[in-house]
Nucleic acid binder design. Structure first.
Lengths: 338, 338
DNA sequence: TTGAAAGCGCTAACAG
DNA sequence: CTGTTAGCGCTTTCAA
């Protein structure tokens, strides 16, 4: 790879001029002719700045890491796309890290920035990483922004408008005439789960419906957890006629469990899922979902992060646009007895 | 972050000693006492080597990129896990890149290594990137290994044993007594598709069954493509009683299309899919699949790559272990008329 | 308007 | 057994 000295030699100028011209240094004050010559030679030699040299000199890598518990989801793909977009705008590169290794005691994060591999990161916490663990990991580090989840006593996060989304899902069932509506939510101490549950409760409350503790399950977002939730729901005396599942994957599990139990969807029980992804179109019946603006979360998160790295105060953002959107498919219908 | 000079000062030795001790330089020949002191101080100061400094000096980043058209699949997660494992063994880091931007004219790849961000990459080509385009991109670059696909006239690849896998899927239907077996394969010019089709043909041939051109569709691996394939298959005079779909996602689309057409699976048509992933358990009916060793592909690919970077000649590998495995679920049964 | 030179943190060849 | 030092490619201050 061509380097600065090479360009300088061929263009008959010094390296410093080359560097300044190539970086569009505002104080270029180089003769236009010289400038053109430098650019010309750089192009001819197909110059690309050596990353390590620059990083060493600037003490900044211009790279960010996006840490997630799970890459293999279309939802993550959206998040990534948004993050990548924002990174490009600011000439940053985004690396992806698996959160498996991020546990309370781990110093993976500190190492990543300590080594200077990345300047900061966007962290999507694992659902069962406690608030304390999280805080001990990231403290008040300005080089981190949390996504989809946040933690008390710490600024720097971008989350979905979970309450509006969950409320929308619940309202859909209410509008269809359902009165006994169950919630299959996340694990008890997650703030995400709390917000979604709040949206659910809000919708019930506004409709004047009673919220029954026996109708809310808090086992988590996996298909298996939802299967167990359905089993317990079917075991109760007053079966729900509709259920909102706080996650698509859970909803898929719920459908499986209902089918196994011989309960028809939607005629006996309606199911609506939080989050939309392509499989929802291919389940049986096809899932009615609420689509959330994940792309925006990624976008805002890295913008925030870059702002923070630039010294701006950390913020806690809630993405409200585009608004949560109901995607009507076939898993919801009016209750039989309505 | 603590740096070498700092450690040297506190330990009362020179930087070179520190560097050698910390890197486990075989020629350490340092007094055990000195060694311990250095390690001690390094730990106290929580030292981590600055990445840029090292990369600049060594002219190697010790990082690899895994380039893929699609992160959002459990299959990719497996690949990644394998790659990460192998990378760790050799003290490399793996970055993930999206292949969207990798088109014929693009210099993204060249740039990545040109900048010195990565030393090489594992490339999973996009299905509709032609052989020529691919070759023009990677030429005979020793810093690249191709996964799941390969291209004539180029060494350095790791692929699945597609023919055995597809053969296994087909044999399963044959064993159930099916005679008219269709294939929903990949796009025509893909070498992956060719190998899978070959496995299918081989199974038919060994069983003495005739292979009918009207029963093989080559529209690609997406759910939509498979839906169209099913429609055309149902339109033909002699309907198949079993179909092997060369990809899970396609199989999910196939199930949707069959349901829409009112064709019962498996009583009227059996469906078996190539590749296993969690959704297969949750479709209706649950999909019988052939599970392929994706993890191993990732593992071997980065091992190969690291070998190549070390100057060893490029190889073309086929992963045969663990063997393709039939995962029996509910989408296959003997044909009605058997 | 341009050039010389220092120095980012590290490794390794060489000298003691 | 340990220290000195050059230099990787780059940016930037200072001088010309």
């Amino acid at each position: 790879m061509a380097k600065l000295t090479e360009i300088a030699r061929q263009a008959g100028v010094s390296v410093s001029v080359v560097s300044r011209v190539l970086n569009g240094d505002p104080t270029v004050r180089a003769r236009e002719e010289t400038r053109q010559r430098v650019l010309q030679v750089a192009k001819e030699l197909n110059y690309t700045a050596n990353y390590a040299g620059r990083a060493l000199r600037l003490a900044r890598s211009k790279a960010l890491a996006l840490i997630t518990p799970n890459v293999s989801s279309p939802l993550f793909a959206d998040l990534l796309a948004g993050a990548t977009q924002a990174a490009e705008e600011a000439d940053y590169t985004v690396l992806i890290g698996l959160a498996d290794t991020i546990t309370a005691g781990s110093d993976t994060l500190r190492r990543l920035v300590g080594e200077g591999r990345v300047d900061g990161f966007v962290l999507q916490r694992h659902d069962d990483l406690s608030d304390q663990a999280l805080e001990s990991l990231v403290a008040n580090d300005a080089r981190v922004v949390l996504v989809t989840s946040r933690t008390p006593g710490r600024r720097g996060s971008v989350v979905l408008d979970d309450v509006t989304g969950a409320k929308l899902a619940t309202e859909h069932l209410i509008a269809l005439g359902h009165k006994r509506i169950a919630l299959i939510g996340g694990v008890p101490h997650s703030d995400i789960a709390r917000r979604r549950e709040h949206g659910y409760a809000l919708a019930l409350h506004e409709a004047g419906l009673r919220r029954r503790e026996s109708l809310v399950c808090r086992l988590g977002y996996t298909p298996e957890a939802a299967e167990r939730a359905i089993e317990s729901l079917l075991g109760t005396g007053a079966r729900p006629t509709g259920v909102v599942v706080a996650n698509v994957n859970g909803a898929i599990g719920a459908l499986t469990a209902l089918r196994r139990a011989g309960v028809d969807v939607p005629s006996e029980i309606s199911v609506v899922a939080y989050h939309d992804e392509w499989v929802a179109e291919h389940t049986w019946p096809a899932l009615t979902t609420v689509k959330m603006p994940y792309y925006q979360v990624g976008l805002q998160a890295v913008r925030s992060l870059i702002d923070q790295l630039g010294g701006k105060p950390a913020q806690d953002l809630v993405v409200r646009e585009p608004k949560p959107e109901l995607v009507l498919r076939s898993s919801t219908a009016p209750p039989k007895t309505a």
